[in-house]
C-alpha cells in the first residue's frame, strides 16, 4: 500500500505541480461550459415559447434534469473519450522515454503497485473534471430558487448517479489508456492507440444498430458509451457497475502483463 501511495504521490505531483492538469481542466471547462450553455439556452427558449403560447401541459414536461443535465452528461462522456487518452498517454511511455523505466523495474515495487499508483493519479484528474460539471447545476439552483416563474428545483439524486456514472466511464477509458501507454515509449503513439481502442469500443455500439437478435444485445452491452445511459436517468444498475469495473480491471491487468513481459522479452 505504501508503495502505491508513493507512486501515486509522484504522479499526482507531475499532474498538479506542472501546468498539465490545469490546461486540461481549462480546455475541459471551456468545452463542457459551451455544451452546457447551448443545451440550457435551447431549454430556456423552449420554455419561453411554451409560456408565450400558454401551453401549460407542455411546460409541465420541461425539467432541468432530463432536458439539460442528462444530455450534458452524455455529451461529456463522448468528450471524455477524446480527452482521457491525453491524460493517460504519458503515464508509462514517459518512463521509458526518460529511461527511468529500468530503475522502476529493478526497484522493490511490484508491477501491480506501479500500475495502481499511476492509475489512481490519473483518476484524481478525472475526478476533478467530473466535479467541474457539477458547477453548472449549482449555478442554476442558485438562480432558480428565486421563485416567480421558476418552479421546482433540480433533483440532485439523479445528478449524483450521473456523476458516479461519468466517473466510472472516465475510469474505464483511463484503464484502456494506461494499457496503451505501456505498449510504447512514444506519448503520441500511446495517445493514438488509446484513441483507437476507445473509438473501437464506441463504434461497436453503432454496429449494434444494424444487428439483430442476440448479437445486437451483446454489441450494445460491449459499447463503452451505452452504460452511462441508466446512470443519467437516476438508475444504478448492478450490471453497469460490473461492466465498468470489468473494463477497468481488464485494462489494468493487460497493463500489468505488458509491463511484466518486458522482463522476458
Amino acid at each position: 500500500m505504501r508503495n502505491i501511495i508513493a507512486i501515486f504521490k509522484k504522479e499526482f505531483k507531475i499532474y498538479f505541480e506542472t501546468p498539465v492538469a490545469y490546461v486540461v481542466f481549462g480546455i475541459f471547462s471551456l468545452i463542457s461550459g459551451y455544451f452546457f450553455l447551448q443545451i440550457f439556452s435551447y431549454f430556456q427558449r423552449q420554455s419561453l415559447q411554451f409560456l408565450q403560447y400558454q401551453a401549460a401541459h407542455m411546460l409541465e414536461h420541461m425539467n432541468l434534469n432530463d432536458m439539460v443535465m442528462r444530455p450534458l452528461f452524455l455529451n461529456i462522456n463522448v468528450f471524455f473519450l477524446l480527452m482521457i487518452p491525453v491524460i493517460t498517454m504519458r503515464l508509462i511511455a514517459d518512463e521509458k522515454r526518460l529511461k527511468t523505466y529500468e530503475l522502476l523495474m529493478t526497484s522493490p515495487v511490484t508491477t501491480w503497485q506501479i500500475v495502481l499508483g499511476k492509475y489512481l493519479a490519473s483518476l484524481s484528474v478525472i475526478l476533478v473534471m467530473v466535479l467541474i460539471v457539477f458547477i453548472y447545476p449549482m449555478l442554476l439552483s442558485f438562480f432558480g430558487s428565486e421563485g416567480g416563474l421558476s418552479t421546482g428545483s433540480i433533483e440532485w439524486m439523479p445528478l449524483l448517479t450521473s456523476g458516479i456514472g461519468l466517473f466510472l466511464a472516465g475510469a474505464s477509458f483511463a484503464a484502456l489508456g494506461i494499457f496503451a501507454s505501456s505498449l510504447t515509449e512514444s506519448q503520441i503513439i500511446s495517445a493514438i492507440v488509446s484513441f483507437g481502442l476507445l473509438l473501437l469500443f464506441w463504434v461497436i455500439g453503432w454496429a449494434s444498430a444494424g444487428a439483430e437478435g442476440i448479437l445486437k444485445e451483446v454489441l450494445r452491452y460491449l459499447s463503452l458509451l451505452e452504460h452511462l445511459d441508466q446512470f443519467t436517468k437516476g438508475l444504478i444498475e448492478v450490471k453497469d457497475i460490473v461492466y465498468y469495473f470489468s473494463v477497468i480491471y481488464f485494462g489494468l491487468f493487460l497493463t500489468q502483463q505488458s509491463i511484466s513481459s518486458q522482463r522476458w522479452r
Partner: peptide, 15 residues
Amino acid sequence: ASSRIFLTQVEANIV
C-alpha cells in the same frame, strides 16, 4: 416533476 427556470438578462449573462 417539472423544473424550469427563467433567468433575467442579467442572470443569464452571469451564467
